[in-house]
Amino acid sequence: MAFTLPNFDVDAFVRATLAEDLGELGDITSAAVIPADARFAGVMDSRNATTIAGLPIAEVFFRTLDPDAEIEILVEEGTQVSPGTEVMRVKGRARALLTAERSALNTVQHLSGIATMTRSYVDAIAGTGATLLDTRKTIPGLRVLEKYATRMGGATNHRMGLWDAAMIKDNHVAVAGGITEAVRRAAAAGIASIIVEVDRIDQIEPALAGGATHLLLDNMGPRLLREAVALVAGRVPTEASGNVTLDTIGTIAQTGVTYISVGRLTQSAPAADIGLDFAAA
């Protein structure tokens, strides 16, 4: 079954990525060094403990250049694997597979890196009742893929874009003339989900009075978060955001917030150490 993601053209992404790498002259190394009829068999494996994401997309890269390639995906997406785990086997035309190798690995390394960091944050709040959210702080053009990777790591997607919920932040409030007025306008526009960013306790009631359906508690320490959660008293979901790290997220989760959003999942996750090694012809 072909791999698909909503609102994302995997085939177009693969073609554009390969075109970027091939340029006008193509893979001059493989063309010069490898006989046209040479075969290649390789194993993709993880060198560190990793949460895997992106293998089906790697398969598309390989099959785009060698439709007859024999490809075996060995682990399911979202699986946590130990160092040395084989995750894919590939066999086919050597020139084609080696031309696709870097693009395939870049994708798997990036997405698995996001999934791995995400899993560490999810594990750190296990049992607290809080849900980890990602953000819109993504690499342009890769949002759908990166948010897919956070799901594979166990997070829940926040807004996919500007279209699926209103998020009223300080600049919106400044232009609109106040929190209550900004929220009132969003509600009057018929927007069902209205997230309002507050960074002070005294902003909570005005936001709720205007019709906020979700409060983002921005850059509040644990004491203020507990106070905010008590004041909201379950009327709307609460979300802690800002300067959340792996060291602090457990304490934040214990304040009773509904959600915790973390931008570094997609902004700062290091690439996973995954390679493709020659096995046999």
Rank of each mutant, 00 (worst) to 15 (best):
R39V: 14
G190M: 09
R143E: 15
L217C: 04
I57Q: 03
E227D: 14
L5P: 14
L231Y: 09
Y259T: 05
R235M: 11
G113I: 12
T51K: 00
I194R: 02
D170Y: 09
F8K: 07
T138A: 12
E86T: 00
F13C: 08
P83W: 04
N219S: 01
V229T: 08
R136W: 12
D123H: 02
T128Y: 11
D247G: 07
I34V: 15
T118A: 00
G242T: 03
A165N: 12
R185E: 13
M44P: 06
F8D: 07
D11F: 01
I252K: 08
K147Y: 13
R185V: 08
R47P: 09
H214E: 13
E181I: 02
S120I: 00
I114F: 14
K169G: 10
R264S: 14
F40G: 02
R102E: 13
G54Y: 12
A124Q: 12
A58P: 07
L5N: 08
D170W: 09
Q267G: 00
G42L: 03
T131W: 07
L132N: 04
D11W: 00
M88I: 02
A253T: 09
Q203G: 05
T4D: 15
I194Y: 05
L217W: 11
G23D: 14
T17L: 07
L133A: 05
M117A: 03
Q80E: 10
I249W: 04
E227G: 00
I249S: 01
D170E: 15
H172K: 02
V236P: 13
E59Y: 02
A280E: 15
M117C: 04
R223L: 10
I194C: 07
G263W: 05
D27V: 06
A192I: 00
G26E: 05
T29H: 10
A174G: 06
D123I: 01
T238R: 06
R95M: 08
E70T: 10
T116D: 05
N106Y: 11
P35L: 00
L215E: 13
S193T: 06
A53C: 15
G23A: 08
I274N: 10
Y148W: 13
A149Y: 12
T85V: 13
Q80W: 02
S112P: 14
A49S: 12
V81F: 12
T131N: 08
D68K: 05
I139G: 01
V75M: 07
S241F: 09
D273E: 14
I252M: 13
